[in-house]
Amino acid sequence: MQRILILLSVILLLSSPACAAVKVVATLPWIGSLAKEIGGDKVDVTTLVKVSQDPHSIEAKPSMIAATRRADILMYNGLDLEIGYLPILMESARNPVINPGNPGNFNCSAYVTALEIPTSTGRENGDVHPLGNPHYHLSPANMKKIAVGMGERLGKADPVHAGFYRGNAARFSTQVDRKMKEWQGSRLKGKQFVSQHRFFEYLAAEFGFSIVGYLEDKPGIPPGSAHVQSLIAGMVKQKPHAILSTSYHDQKPARFVSSKTGVRTVTVPHDVGAGGSRDWFWLMDAVIASLE
């Protein structure tokens, strides 16, 4: 009996809020990184997805459920990118605070103007995202809006430090503006690229380059040989600057097309942590350097 009591009290002790820091659970590395930037030492951030993992094929591990159970705020990408694991994670976590509509549910995409919202969502077109292209995190304009929204939301969860969060968000915004001048100086404008996946559309829209072809004819489906042949034929004529790929993709198709066309392949760091990047600015620097 005594042992049970001790065990129970240990459990209760562990389950009681030990420290005052706002517990943030972020799905993707860039979201976790941004939360650290805005929240500083006032937040305790857990990131569910590792940079080595393909964000499209994540499984809801029990450890993710345990982390989400203790979260004050769940921050996620949205636009169906986490559809394979987030719904089950949210139901399994038994944490009403993070349910949709509650302040603990922070959908970053709510601050984003989505591109490429499809008019037809049949799966004969591959794994299309009905809500639009979910890879918006390489867009400085969107990032500013998300940072400000995140600052406001953290302020709601922790009103005592609302000014701190707002200040950090404002600082982030001004830094984006400052870096933007530097990035605008890059020689990306007017360049043409071929990309493996629809990953760089927001970046292209903001930096004035274009994606003229895709290795993946249909999102999430490996390219068929007829498509690859016509792509190669087009590339030989058009001579795009490079073939863009990300580290979690199979590099073989990109290398094959490269060998047939002489267009070099570039493995672009896709999220914070890739290419040695420690935060989003670092990531953007690395992305733009790799594209040049």
């Binding site: 559809i83 719904p87 009905p130």
Partner: peptide, 9 residues
């Protein structure tokens, strides 16, 4: 589309 919550659809 922005409020797609629980099941994300």
């Amino acid at each position: 589309s922005k409020t797609s919550g629980f099941f994300g659809g």
